[in-house]
Design a protein around this nucleic acid. Structure first.
Lengths: 104, 104
DNA sequence: ACCTCATATCAAAAATTATTGATATGAGGT
DNA sequence: ACCTCATATCAATAATTTTTGATATGAGGT
């Protein structure tokens, strides 16, 4: 089943893993090559690749290819989108229904 | 292993499930009793309870007990915290390291 | 063309999370 | 005290995600 929420969850799924938050923390220092991330994280090469894919697919991180190296950095645009999405999902609607149900 | 990221992931884990986003969507209309959520979602009672626990534990939703009923609503404070956390995690540090590695 | 290096993909196993049905708890009413 | 209703918890299963090692791809150098 395809639903709108599927797109929404993708962003948060990217952020709900410890390894990926560690990666994000490293990327806050600026753009980094996969090989640098690899030596700064206690993780294998294929594992890193897996996580980077999730981060890039979510839009929060963007990648740049240079020869055989891949460089990653936090995407300003993607992060902003994530922020807006979070806000949208947690902001009450303008017309609030009264909770008349189940009163004593 | 206990890490700081563990606390961080909790918030996003709450938001990375479709069912829980549906629940959040319903709660944007205002506070609702579990029994109302139950009839508006295609989900079982124990399942709802499971998801509500995740949402409440993350801080994004707060619950209020009234007799035998439990009412839920979006927590303004918790949502704001989630937003700040997201921002914190995706905002580059003031001092950006240069990416000297792996140039052609 | 061949070799090497960086990264991606694949497939299997391990770990985590979600679903489901059964049972427990605890509040209010009789 | 007992019954009923709303919700929580538990235990088993199912589904999804992560980890790991092996292999594939594709760029640059010789």
């Amino acid at each position: 089943m395809i639903s709108t929420y599927d797109n929404y969850t993708k962003v948060f799924k990217a952020l709900c893993d410890e390894q990926r938050l560690r990666i994000l923390e490293l990327l806050r220092d600026g753009e980094k090559c996969a090989c640098v991330l690899l030596e700064q994280l206690d993780i294998g090469q294929s594992g890193l690749s897996y996580h980077m894919k999730k981060l890039v697919d979510s839009g929060v991180v963007e990648s740049r290819q240079d020869g055989k190296w891949t460089h990653y950095k936090i995407s300003e645009k993607g992060s902003a989108y994530a922020g807006e999405l979070l806000k949208k999902l947690t902001t009450p609607n303008s017309v609030i229904e009264e909770n008349n149900c189940c009163k004593r």
